[in-house]
Design a protein around this nucleic acid. Structure first.
Lengths: 390, 390
DNA sequence: TTTATCGATGAATCCCATA
DNA sequence: CTATGGGATTCATCGATAA
């Protein structure tokens, strides 16, 4: 992981993974231990982090699988199921208490516009979702991870359990400013909106961490592609991503690759050590491969008046809609005249159509070289000139 | 619906839909009102049914959507939202109380090996799942209904909400003898196990019931294909299927088609009357047609992002056209960078050529073993892998 | 008659910076 | 805090209408 960094230069609290298994003291209050793994209890570690300090949470909590007895394949080979102690809870009440505790601790640490992803299966996700709602989180989507290659149902008594569910939630209903790279996701998806069902293969092969005996090191290692899509969708380069159930560090590896910071919390020092080795071997991608793409919403605002002042549209010129059903006259002050009304390009577009609102940039057109050109194209020329000057 | 039948021949309690809106007395205790609609409160009606009398429950309860303000499409048309009184609850606590009451009433009526399906969205399904578990139901699967044609996200602030969730649960963990037509489903699915994600279109067109003015009669009518798959999977001909939120009778129509009996409970006499007319017009299919219908398989759409996620193209890699006149950089989110522009492989192909459109799959190439390979070939590899996995 | 175009619509928790 | 107003935002499908 290289040199640990904090948000206060030169005062890094030197928190390191404890290969010995001892729980080391976490960050001193007020400091954010960037790109580090805190070994120890999840809730205690979270409580030591400063409030409102992380931009995104990715959580892969214990699923509370209620497996009774061993599961065998048709050839009588044993299915290596999740039977670890950390996945055992005495009752739903215990699981709920645990769930609410860590969700509450995460919420305190989240910045106002941070969001949280939790992944789970039908064993636990309903309890997680209920807890989220009860704790005033605001669900934005549930997302289905459709597995390309799920484990078949060997007994033939149920549908193949071919998916897991992620819940994406904001800190509250009023947190409207969360990060969502809508345009980039759409562009990467053949120019169609990214849907709530994601088709991604399991984590297998080389990506899957193995122990010395060639056995899988962690029973539920998630594919990097899944975590990458989460980080690309809902965080920016330089953001801080918290993973309270760090495991073997998939979140850390993806965060480093994509130029995000991470904070990992992991109880098991063996997993934490494996995660540290794994992340140390990861190289960050070329910054151009993950830099925030320019989105229309983030582009500089250009008032219509600027087009008139630049001479791209002349005062006194007529603008029309695409089908020439409506027209208006450009005034020297950057307003439009639709006799007797005068107002912005948006207000006048809305007025002539009888709509409550309208995007005047795309609605109104001017004739150039015998063709109708939307004002938006002329605005693009101004923006290009601005970008060149900068 | 023809002649009402009961499980005690000759003693039918003559319960009929009340077109007047009055709640008619339901079955006398001990009798099961087959193929009839009980008009009135769901829980009261269920409590009048004999214990352990139905084989399957399909429930489509209110979702508690909690919609505020109006939503308009980009063309300024208004989205016809679900704003009915029956979907309004004062709080999660109220919704939970309602949910637990009807689930408890259903459980009493279910035979020992009966199962129950509930459908919902992220607004309510987590609360339903939690209630199921708390009431000692045993979840067998959660199932994702992937919508072929969901409504888009018009504001670009979330993922397209393209699915709903069904929970399939047995009466208890000890109920091992439930009906599941594993072989039939597999045979109807190209000899592949039926997975937990189902791809089915919305209920539109002719199937959608309309009122006199041509408007949809019910705001949330479910597609028959969805209900048919449920009934074919988890019931036998002659079985009794209970739907406590009958609406316009999709469950009844499908049950009749497939030779199952139904019991419907519906509060709204207008919906109940429409359901009765609808079901009366349905004809039972030839018994040989009851076998699971084969599902349509369409060639999967593979977005460019999938190639990046699979590592077939690396983030940061350069792509060029066949004659190496233009180049672009692949980004981790599946977009291309042609500084300073970022967009889909198609948009960027069009941009560099100055064309209005371009097929990025055939235009852009990557170098492999010293030769330029079109992206389309790499997409072919993904498709081949998908076909092999299937 | 066939094909192209246009309009309508679906369980939706759907904007945000500035004053 | 609220109010204002600029301006950003859609996919698959079905049916009616036009060519």
């Amino acid at each position: 992981m290289g040199t640990p960094r904090t948000d206060v230069a030169g005062t890094a609290p030197r928190i390191k993974v404890a290969r010995t298994g001892a729980v080391v003291p976490a960050a001193r209050m007020g400091l954010v231990p960037l790109d580090q793994i805190l070994v120890g209890d999840c809730i205690a570690a979270l409580e030591r982090l400063p409030a409102e300090s992380v931009d995104l949470v990715f959580a892969d909590p214990p699923y509370n699988l209620q497996l009774e007895g061993a599961l065998t394949r048709p050839d009588n080979s044993l299915v290596d199921a999740v039977d670890d102690d950390w996945d055992k809870f005495a009752s739903f009440a215990d699981y709920d208490a645990f769930t609410r505790a860590w969700l509450k601790a995460c919420r305190r640490v989240m910045k106002k516009n941070a969001t949280l992803f939790v992944i789970g299966s039908y064993h636990n996700i309903f309890r997680v979702g209920t807890a989220l709602q009860d704790l005033q989180y605001w669900i934005l989507n549930d997302i289905v991870w459709r597995k390309a290659n799920p484990m078949p149902n060997f007994r033939g008594r149920r549908f193949t359990n071919a998916h897991e569910t992620l819940i994406w939630a904001a800190r509250g209903a009023d947190a409207k400013g969360y990060t969502f790279h809508y345009e980039a996701l759409k562009a990467g998806n053949d120019d169609l909106q990214m849907r709530s069902d994601w088709f991604i293969p399991l984590c297998t092969g080389e990506e899957r961490l193995k122990d010395g005996a060639g056995q899988k090191l962690h029973p539920t290692q998630k594919p990097e592609a899944l975590v990458a899509r989460v980080l690309l969708a809902a965080s920016n380069p330089g953001d801080i991503v918290l993973d309270p159930f760090f495991g073997t560090g998939t979140t850390g590896a993806v965060a480093k690759k994509l130029g995000r910071h991470f904070i990992g919390v992991e109880r098991d020092p063996v997993y934490a050590a494996a995660a540290e080795r794994r992340i140390a071997a990861v190289e960050q991608l070329d910054a151009r491969a993950f830099a925030a793409a320019p989105s229309k919403r983030s582009e500089p605002r250009v008032p219509f008046l600027a087009l008139v002042e630049a001479g791209l549209v002349k005062a006194g010129e007529t603008v029309t809609d695409e089908k020439r059903r409506f027209k208006a006259t450009v005034r020297a002050d950057g307003t439009l005249l639709v006799p007797p009304a005068v107002g912005s390009i948006h207000k006048m577009g809305a007025l002539v159509q009888g709509f409550p609102s309208c995007n005047g940039w795309t609605f109104w057109h001017v004739e150039r070289a015998g063709r109708l050109v939307p004002l938006d194209d002329l605005r693009g020329e101004i923006r290009a000139a601005l970008a060149e000057a900068a």
